[in-house]
């Protein structure tokens, strides 16, 4: 909770009301529950988990883009939940988002120049058009697109180029934090690496903090310093990337790693996690993972495990965590 931290979220919960109407309140969908995380400048935190586990909701909550049901988010030393709507909008400039679908996130009727200028129009209305253009040009250059791109429209660019434009737009306000929600999932492998390298270079140059939400574990492993694994809205494991990948302690983390088919001759085909993700509207009692867990015991059916620290920098939410040796 030190003031030096760029981002510090404590006990965050985001619930959505589903159904409901005049007569009844409907049910609460607990999209994010009891999530805490923090990030220093220049650091990357990878957030992984299956679709529907609350990754995107968490990302939006970190930027104050979605109402928080409980908990608080400190961004650059200021509690977002304490801000008025207006002050929140102003403060949000420090944190920007990069989206999964690069083309869909760019307004098709605007030129790239207009798209890049848009955030400045809102946040720095006094900047002269010339200065705006200069910043847009230098960022386009930086993300590997030339000045010619300024006058083009989004549909004239490939997926990878659109993602570069999305990154340039996110950087126009010189933010301290980028939340990237599946930024390379829609791109071909040969293009993914170009974008990942770009993000890493920008981070090194500008000391950006990155929250990198993705389901592709190989990319997360490459870019993240620390990893946080979510299951049905809750953190089930967190720790330094190398340690988590070398010896996951939660059976779900282990399962996620083992489920990825390897592009290697003779690689074994493994089915480590059975069944489907349960509905977040109707989470299983006890440990939410127990119906799919190969290690579940009676206690797991009834008693929800707490997130317990394992040494200084790791934590796991499991009654029967894997030990270091068995996972090695």
């Amino acid at each position: 909770m030190s003031a030096a931290r760029l981002l510090d979220a404590q006990d965050l919960a985001v619930h959505y009301r589903i159904g409901g109407g005049l007569l009844h309140r409907g049910r609460a969908l607990r999209a994010v529950e009891e999530v805490s995380l923090n990030l220093a400048a220049g650091e990357t935190l990878g957030i992984v988990g299956e679709s529907g586990c609350g990754k995107s909701t968490l990302g939006r909550a970190l930027l104050g883009l979605t109402p928080i049901t409980r908990g608080r988010v400190m961004l650059a030393g200021i509690d977002l939940t304490s801000l008025s709507a207006r002050a929140l909008r102003a403060h949000r400039r420090h944190a920007q988002m990069v989206f999964q679908d690069p083309l869909a996130s760019l307004d098709p009727r605007m030129t790239v120049g207009q798209i890049l200028a848009e955030p400045l129009r809102v946040h720095e209305p006094s900047m002269t058009p010339l200065a705006v253009r200069a910043r847009a040009l230098s960022l386009l250059e930086r993300v590997g697109l030339g000045a010619a791109a300024l006058n083009g429209y989004p549909h004239e660019f490939s997926g990878g180029q659109c993602q570069r434009i999305g990154i340039a737009r996110a950087l126009m306000l010189r933010p301290k934090l980028l939340v990237c929600d599946e930024p390379v999932s829609a791109l071909d492998v040969s293009i993914q690496g170009q974008i990942v390298n770009l993000l890493q270079d920008l981070q090194a140059e500008q000391g950006l903090g990155l929250v990198f939400i993705a389901h592709d574990l190989a990319v997360v492993r490459h870019i993240s310093h620390r990893v946080q694994v979510l299951y049905l809205g809750r953190t089930v494991e967190t720790g330094p990337t190398a340690a988590i990948f070398a010896a996951p302690r939660h059976p779900y983390t282990r399962g996620l790693l083992d489920a990825v088919p390897e592009a290697r001759p003779g690689a074994p085909l493994r089915v480590p996690v059975a069944g489907d993700l349960p509905s977040p509207l109707d989470p299983p009692p006890g440990c939410a993972f127990h119906p799919r867990c190969p290690r579940a015991q009676a206690r797991c059916h009834t008693e929800a495990p707490a997130l317990r620290p394992l040494g200084a920098d790791r934590a796991v939410r499991c009654h029967f965590p894997l030990d270091d040796a068995s996972a090695a």
Binding site: S190, G193, Q194, N197, A218, R221, E262, A263
Partner: peptide, 18 residues
């Protein structure tokens, strides 16, 4: 060569261009 899972270096090897 550009598959992230096959790489351990600091930078990802990529195929330039498109």
């Amino acid at each position: 060569a550009s598959l992230p899972a096959r790489q351990h270096g600091a930078r990802l090897a990529t195929l330039a261009g498109q």
